[in-house]
């Protein structure tokens, strides 16, 4: 599967990554090679095979809806890049 420069721009947008113009070509080649490599999967006949998500085919365990965690807001916020009055600060979104 050969990707185009435009594909790389789209993928980067999906992944919220900024790829510089001078890196586009390298990513195009590397990602195309990886996708070409994984095309080996087409050798397998997977018709009627159930996809496997968990090795033990477990069901999602449920628990009682009770608070089990203690509130560590201050501890969590002291490692944040910017906070104010107990809130996380981000650049202005609405003028």
């Amino acid at each position: 599967m050969a990707l185009s420069t435009e594909d790389i721009r789209d993928i980067a947008k999906l992944a919220k990554l900024q790829i510089n113009e001078d890196e586009l070509d390298r990513y195009k080649q590397e990602l195309s090679r990886i996708l070409e490599f994984v095309e080996q999967m087409n050798q397998a006949d997977v018709e009627n095979i159930e996809p496997m998500a968990h090795p033990q085919d477990m069901i999602q365990p449920l628990r009682v809806d009770e608070i089990t965690e203690t509130n560590l807001r201050e501890k969590f916020q002291c490692i944040a890049p910017a906070t104010q009055d107990g809130l996380y600060l981000v650049p202005k979104v609405i003028e």
Binding site: I11, L31, E50, P51
Partner: peptide
Amino acid sequence: IMVGAYALSAGYYDAYYLKAQKI
């Protein structure tokens, strides 16, 4: 991250992720 974003993107999920889970 980019390979993964591509494999999970609309129209490619079955060809990549689902097939890989079957393998």
